[in-house]
């Protein structure tokens, strides 16, 4: 499908989903399979056997503290190896089921290493990486919870981060537009997804010191005109995460698409954006 929307930088050839045993990963897998089916793309499941965990388990004092119970249990390499094998097997089973359900080709890649490094090593610019947001990470605020954020902001491909609860399908797809340099690719991806699912597209226009909202709207409008996309506009008082969170709570949407270069992502103080909103987010590199 070589239309103008499928320019090399927006084309999605492969959907990669990072699998683990969490519920969020299952939601992510389902969304990934649906996207793959819609885009006629390949579905690649990625299961990473975390070496940090394996090393930790091999130490003589290796212990595990239960998430909910707080009980301290001994940990052994054999146990950990067995668990990882089981999880990989479970991931294969889930992937096969999702592939069958959506009639898409799928592959499972199991590798051993650190999650972030291994994930980044696998992705290519024409991929879409789908991650489940780890609920626990939000609650505890632990640094490894920001793994998702780190991957989203450093991956060479688009990254979609999903919550555990699916959003109502009738809501529009939202895209944050902060200018043609960062926003055009986000707009293109958003238009593509809106067209795929036959949904309305709302462009969020944040006010900033550099560009006036009217100007932004004008640019987005001319982009839409060029690409024959139907869009609505919504102006925001700023691009800060709290403003965005507030605006999204009021509007409600199905999906938020924004550029990695966006103020809301780049400003380190605002990294919590990804944790704060329940909406699925697609970060465009």
């Amino acid at each position: 499908m070589a239309t103008s929307n499928n320019a090399p930088h927006t084309r999605i050839e492969r959907i990669i989903v990072l699998l683990d045993s969490s519920r969020a990963a299952r939601v992510a897998l389902d969304a990934a399979a649906e996207l793959a089916a819609r885009r006629h793309a390949q579905l690649l499941g990625l299961f990473i056997e975390n070496t940090d965990l394996l090393h930790s388990a091999s130490l003589p004092f290796g212990r595990e503290i239960g998430f909910t119970s707080g009980r301290i249990r001994p940990l052994s390499t054999a146990d950990m190896e067995r668990r990882l094998r089981q999880q990989a097997e479970e991931a294969r089973r889930l992937l096969a089921a999702a592939g069958r359900r959506r009639a898409v080709q799928w592959n499972l890649q199991v590798c051993r290493g650190q999650v972030e490094a291994e994930t980044l090593a696998v992705t290519k610019p024409t991929d879409l990486l789908v991650l489940g947001r780890i609920a626990l990470a939000r609650d505890t605020g632990l640094r490894f919870g920001q793994l998702t954020v780190r991957i989203a902001t450093t991956a060479n491909c688009s990254v979609m981060v999903l919550g555990e609860t699916p959003q109502p399908v009738q809501r529009p797809i939202l895209v944050l537009y902060e200018g043609p340099e960062t926003g055009d690719r986000a707009l293109a991806t958003a238009a593509l997804m809106a067209r795929d699912t036959n949904q309305a597209l709302t462009v969020l226009l944040p006010a900033s010191a550099d560009v006036r909202e009217e100007e932004l709207e004008q640019r987005a409008r001319s982009w839409a005109l060029r690409h024959k996309a139907t869009v609505n506009f919504m102006r925001l008082p700023g691009a800060d995460a709290p403003i965005l969170v507030q605006a999204l709570r009021q509007t409600g949407g199905r999906l938020l698409i924004l550029s990695r270069a966006s103020h809301a992502v780049q400003n380190p103080a605002n990294r919590s954006l990804l944790d704060e909103i329940a909406l699925p987010i697609v970060v465009i590199p």
Partner: peptide, 12 residues
């Protein structure tokens, strides 16, 4: 390091 496993945390 504080590492998250499937069902808990571990220190190493």
């Amino acid at each position: 390091a504080l590492i998250q496993s499937q069902s808990g945390f571990t220190f190493a």
